[in-house]
Amino acid sequence: MKTWAEIMEIQPLAGKIITNSIKKGRVSHAYLISGERGTGKASIALQLAKSLFCSNKEGVEPCQTCNTCKRIESKNHPDVHWIEPEGQSIKREQIDNLQKEFKYSGLESNRKVYIIKAADTLTLNAANRILKFLEEPNKETTAIMLTENSQAIIPTIRSRCQILDLQPLDPYHFQKQLIDAGITEDNARLFSALTNNLTEATRWNEDDWFASARKLVVQLIEKFVESTDDVYLLIHNKWLPHFKERNQQEHGLDLLLLAFKDMMMAHIGYEDAIVFFYKSKEKLEDFMMAFSQAKILMILNAILAAKQKLKQNVHPTLVMEQLTLQIQR
């Protein structure tokens, strides 16, 4: 999404609120933009920054071609500061460095913008330091905080921001985009359940790693069905070596979650919602016979808890061993 017109097509309410503010010269000193991955949070932040700095814009639309727009797009503008998590969180030191930057006037104007990605990962100390900015707003400063979970933001920050909740993307529309991009219907259904980002989905489609990840999930469920101790060998010899990085570990649990959700959908006769086993109905029937609805519900809750533990930086080996034990009970 490169223009406000494109943003308005995907996020009409958020787009209208911000463009009206720009037209009236009443841009908020702080925005909290909340939405799932791929719903346009970063695109809106970039577009807002360009609209504030671009001197060649037509109405609210920045020109996209001037040096200012290009530097904001590449995150190289000296008065637009991006803050992203270092490791699992945004730390106090990062906010301290931002505060030092803001003691000086802008290099090219008096305006400054700072964009905080994954704002829900702010440590408590970092959040309290950000709060000072919000309590003493400068009319030439705009804060834009992006999050997938606005409820994880401390109330004192939320109360000082204009909150924009982005609507989820239409999965069927996104599936059509994926199919038009050359992705099979089977993969399009699966990818649309995991991401709203076309670039990310295209990369997965071309990556042997993702195909292997899908096979590993099936193998793991087969071991659970067989009720053997071989499941621990698979976890240590195949699962953990394959899902090395934190985002890969989360993808593995997401795939496992979708597989068990399919079993629940099959139990209740909602076959249109089947995603993971869309082209493997016979395999799905075999698996659902091994798990009752009550058992599947327990497993789904256990997987969600495991995802939360990963976010809390619990060691992935411990997370998977505990999850395996819960599923085998």
Rank of each mutant, 00 (worst) to 15 (best):
A14D: 08
A193I: 01
W209N: 06
A306S: 14
I116K: 11
R189K: 14
I90G: 05
P137Q: 09
L256W: 01
L240E: 06
K103S: 13
K223Q: 15
A305H: 14
Y31D: 10
K16E: 15
R26I: 09
L164M: 04
W239P: 09
V80I: 15
G35K: 09
A259V: 03
L253E: 00
K91Q: 09
L190Q: 05
V319E: 08
W4Y: 07
P171V: 10
A14F: 10
I179G: 00
A119N: 05
S150Y: 05
A5N: 14
G269M: 13
M8Q: 15
C54W: 03
K238T: 15
S212I: 04
I10W: 01
D180G: 03
S150W: 00
L178I: 09
N187H: 12
Q322G: 09
E135F: 09
E148D: 04
M320T: 07
I116R: 11
I130G: 04
R92I: 15
C63G: 07
Q94Y: 06
A119P: 07
T324W: 08
T121E: 13
L134V: 07
E61K: 11
Q219A: 15
T202V: 09
S292K: 11
Q94W: 08
E9T: 12
G252D: 01
T39E: 01
N76F: 14
L240G: 05
Q11V: 03
Q328V: 05
D207T: 04
E206N: 14
W82D: 03
D286Q: 09
L122M: 11
Q219Y: 13
Y104W: 12
E321K: 08
L256M: 09
T19W: 13
R246N: 08
M320H: 12
C54D: 04
K311Q: 15
F102T: 07
F102L: 12
T68R: 07
G15M: 10
S51V: 12
T156W: 10
E200P: 01
I268S: 03
E9D: 14
E285Y: 07
F291R: 12
L13Y: 15
S212L: 08
F224P: 03
T184I: 02
T195P: 00
T141G: 02
A266Y: 11
T3I: 10
I22W: 04
F276Q: 03
L32R: 07
T19M: 07
A211P: 00
L32Q: 09
T141P: 01
F210R: 06
H173P: 00
M265Y: 13
K50S: 05
L325W: 10
N138G: 12
V231D: 00
V113L: 10
A266I: 02
I154T: 15
L48R: 11
Q99F: 02
F133W: 06
A14I: 06
V80F: 12
T65P: 00
S227P: 00
I130V: 15
Q47N: 13
L216H: 13
A127R: 10
E245P: 00
E206R: 14
E86A: 06
R189P: 00
L178R: 08
P78K: 14
V80Q: 08
K261I: 00
L256R: 02
L166A: 02
L300D: 11
K103D: 11
M264W: 04
P316F: 01
E93R: 14
D208W: 00
T184L: 01
A30L: 11
E93Q: 12
S159I: 13
N197Q: 11
Q328G: 01
M1C: 01
D96A: 12
L190W: 06
K139I: 06
E200G: 00
E185V: 04
G40F: 04
H77I: 10
V319F: 06
